[in-house]
Amino acid sequence: MTDMVDKQVHSAADRDDPRLKDRSRSRAYLALLVVAVVLALLPLGMSDRVETIAVRTLIFAIMAVAWNLMSGYGGLFSFGHAAFFGIGAYTDAYLVVDHSVSPWIAMIVGALLAAAAGGAIAFLCLRYRLAGAYFALATFAFAMMFLLVVQNLEILHKTEGFNLPILPTYSWKMMQFAQGSRNYYWIPLGILVVALAGTIAFVGSRAGQYAQAIRDDEVAAASLGINALRYRLVTVALSCGLTAVAGAYYTQYYFFVGPDQGFGSGVSIEAMIPAVIGGIGTVWGPVIGALVVGPLAEGITSILRNPPQVLSFLQGLTGLDVAVYAVLLIVIVLFMPKGIYGTLRDRWRK
């Protein structure tokens, strides 16, 4: 025992004190690598129908990973991520359709615009000391405002939205491939993997640690010399930029975006729900949540389009997806308040 105490006293000087090892980080990267390889191989045995579901799930996952950065790690609950998804989707549509810009470029431009917009919105909210539910409501209001503006802007085709032209040749540059090409799956998978690697890196970085400290206790963080506003805005910008990338890919994949697909309040819910269900403030929660919500959303869509005999009354109904999310949310909040991943992890640790 004395021996151990002795060792510990001297260990601060040790370069490789075992207590300093952050094993969770290297383990997370390893897990990501495995998941990435498995998911990359999946489409080899996939039908086209399954691929559509898979792509939708991937888009959900990217949105949820993005939302989780700001609301999970940053503690700023956003109820208006549609604003940033819409900026991404519309920037892509506008630049690709009207100016024949490469979607890759459009994606980056959209991400920068969304990061700036998100930063400005968060700055205003924080400047006027909106917190908690008030902050969430303010983000919701901004998203609604964007929706109204877009619906009335001639340059964005008002309520009509944009249809992407189908180009005569396939190319990576214009992100267009033969119908059923697996590239449509691999691209969002690549984006998701980069986003997850970025999340793991961010969480363990100085900025990410600061963000979490500010979330836990802003006053204490400030007393340690941390500029809370600055690091909050960094987190918000990252989150909003990534959300815009998901939006841009949405436009590319569906060849269409309208005001509701881009800025509708349903989109804000879709960014939030997978993260909450899977576990906010965790790396894997949003992905696990998306695995539940993605197929569910696709299932609901197809049931509404083509209901079986017993459910024929559902034909053409809208809003069923949101109702189902609400029920799911209540169940999760009641039985797994930390989300699927958070709850399982806690149980595992015990």
Binding site: L20, R215, D216, D217, V219, S223, G225, G281
Partner: peptide, 21 residues
């Protein structure tokens, strides 16, 4: 006022970051 979701080590490291990037 601890940062409750963090370990003791990370709590203190938050402050150490002022001088160690």
């Amino acid at each position: 006022r601890p940062f409750e979701s963090m370990s003791v080590l990370d709590n203190v490291a938050i402050a150490s970051h002022a001088r160690h990037r």
